[in-house]
Structures are given as C-alpha cells and as structure tokens.
C-alpha cells in the first residue's frame, strides 16, 4: 500500500492496515473497525453513503498521525476510510496502531477515532426506507418525519 492515511472508494482490508504497522518493535497491534449499523435510535438504515473532501481528508488524517506521534512517540498508525455507498456491516473506517505495549495502542487507537469525528472532512448520509439525511444536518430538512416505522423514536 502506498499511503498509510487514505480515503478510498474501494473496500478496506483489515490485513493490509495491520501490515502497515506490524514491526519487530511492536508487542501490540490494535485495530478498530467502524462498521455500518442497521438500527440507529430504532430506525432501520438501508445503506450509508460517505462523501469526503478527499485531498483535505487525507491531509487531516496525516495530521492526526502526527498528533499520535507527539503523544505516543513509540506508536505507528495507519487509517483507511471508505467513501461511496456502504451496506450494513461494511467497514467504513479501519484504524491500526502498533506500540511496544498494549495500553498505548488501545489509547492511541481511540484517540484517532475521536479526532476523525472532529477534524476530518467526511460526511455520511443515512438512507432509510422512507427518506434520507446527511448526518450533521441538524435541520433534518430531507427527512420525512411522519411516514417511518421508527419515526416516533427520538
């Protein structure tokens, strides 16, 4: 793989991301796989669509990688994020971190997903049976609030 921090429309590989960080100095490789959940607040997702500001998103992922290095100098990390249409249980993001000892790898891995949700320009659109909505669009302008089986849940 050419890049350690990338956005792609192709399926992500757990093995390839792990291989990016596996090395003799490491005693732990922790991976996080963010997958597409079928039910959110009682409402059934049919599929998700991810969109990215591709070039800036990769820059921001690299910046997070540098932040990890500052906090955990012994850590190596790699991140892949999908775009396009994803089905239930597909991997939307895979984060791999290796460190000499496991505690740092767990901590750094969680740090990365939290930062992705803050500073990486990627958006997901929920597609339900009866509507769709960009997540983060608090106005919910495209949602059909009345016709949904799970529409009463909030």
């Amino acid at each position: 793989m050419e890049k350690r921090f990338f956005v792609t429309s192709e399926p992500l590989s757990v093995e390839e991301l792990a291989a990016e960080v596996t090395r003799p100095e490491a005693g732990a490789v922790v991976q996080f796989i963010g997958t597409v959940r079928e039910f959110t607040k009682g409402r059934r997702t049919v599929y998700l669509e991810y969109e990215a500001y591709h070039s800036m998103a990769e820059k921001q992922l690299e910046a997070i990688g540098r932040e990890v290095k500052e906090r955990w100098p012994d850590a190596e990390s790699a991140v892949g994020h999908r775009t396009g249409e994803l089905q239930i249980s597909d991997a939307a993001v895979i984060i791999a971190v290796s460190t000499p000892h496991r505690k740092d790898a767990y901590e750094a891995n969680e740090y990365i997903i939290e930062r992705i949700k803050q500073i990486v320009p990627i958006w997901k659109k929920e597609h339900w049976e009866d509507g769709e909505q960009w997540v983060g669009d608090q106005l919910e302008q495209t949602r059909y609030p009345d016709g949904a089986p799970g529409g009463g849940n909030k």
Binding site: Y53, P121, I122, W123, W134, G136, Q138
Partner: peptide, 29 residues
Amino acid sequence: TAVNEEFAEESTPVSQGDTVALIPPVSGG
C-alpha cells in the same frame, strides 16, 4: 470553511484563484 485545504476563520484572507470549501459538521468514522 477551509481555504486551500486548511481550516479557516472568517478573517482568513481569500484571493483570486483560491479554493474555499464549505464544511458542514463532519460525520465520518
């Protein structure tokens, strides 16, 4: 907003040829 792929403030300068991105709250991961 971002100007030329860097997050920006309202006071960030913009000039001819620049790219300004409108960035709604992100929802990746």
